[in-house]
Design a binder for these strands. Structure first.
Lengths: 165, 165
DNA sequence: TAGAGATATTTCAAACTCAAAATATTTATG
DNA sequence: CATAAATATTTTGAGTTTGAAATATCTCTA
């Protein structure tokens, strides 16, 4: 049996399961905890202040960034939720008059979803309030820590990038 | 035009608020992105490998840490989900034979939920696999960054601790 | 001790979510 | 051109989630 350097593969693996992997698990549980807590706070504020929901806000936000509209598939990919999920939320937003579905030239399967004027106006106002809520909920987060947080989280999300495309 | 922003006191507050609050918003969106991505991966693995779901796993995990069982209200508080939500998940886990509801002495309103032997056994096995999945998904996260992440996230969750109690 | 208020849990309706199946349409292949 | 495969979306059924209302029980106080 061929054992080499002090940090050899076998020991490293064992340490990893007992130490590093536990640290990573703790990190994940902490991410989950914060994200649930913040989501809960924002959901409540959305409901009380806007009479709306987080998923609807997310859809509006995505479409506000893409003013020419997006296909349903682009929308669901960008929000990382299923296609069928987006269908229902868009349906409700359309019936509220905030979105429209526009047929796509040369492809009758697809449709583009876009903000209406009312949707644009509504979202523009709400986005500012939303940003203020988040800033308040994160008020103990310094600029330095915000950057550190983003950097670390990016290393995680890059590793889990969809392998295709 | 010769403007020096850092010397402009009137603008400083506005700039600071706007920059810092945007950084915090970006941090929040990144948390959301990672947590959705990881949750999606774990959900799929749970479904395929265990034929189960994330919420069920979360309930089992909470009860595995409290071997004497928890009240429904403690459970929902610990998982940060509504009471009614836990009822449904516990119902299913009871019907799968992994949990039991035990009446509470001197309080017929309440009941204690506990793992059955089967539930304990099942979870113990699955927890190891789950930890390995997380460690793999977080494999770009060094011990140092894991600690940094946890520290930063704790400052956020402490600020948003429930004010009551 | 009667009954008002508090507490623990469940039930309920609506919304969200997923994965898989169904539908409609387009593209590619023979 | 016919039609098989691919693509875009919706529908479906089951599960999760919420917030509010309902139910059951307990506690406190007059």
């Amino acid at each position: 049996m061929n054992m080499n350097h002090s940090d050899d593969q076998r020991d490293q693996m064992d340490n990893e399961t007992s130490d590093l992997s536990k640290a990573r698990l703790r990190a994940w549980l902490q991410i989950l905890k914060v994200s649930r807590k913040i989501e809960g706070e924002l959901r409540e504020k959305m409901r009380i202040e806007f009479g709306s929901t987080l998923p609807r806000f997310d859809v509006l936000a995505a479409l506000y960034r893409e003013r020419d509209g997006m296909r349903m598939s682009e929308l669901s990919k960008s929000l990382m939720v299923s296609n069928g999920n987006v269908t229902g939320i868009v349906d409700r937003l359309v019936s509220e008059g905030l979105l429209v579905r526009v047929p796509v030239e040369n492809d009758r399967r697809a449709s583009i979803v876009r903000l209406t004027e009312a949707g644009e106006k509504d979202f523009a106002e709400r986005a500012l309030v939303h940003e203020a809520w988040v800033s308040e909920l994160f008020s103990d987060l310094s600029a330095r820590d915000a950057d550190g947080l983003i950097r670390i989280l990016r290393t995680i999300s890059h590793h889990n990038e969809a392998p295709h495309d």
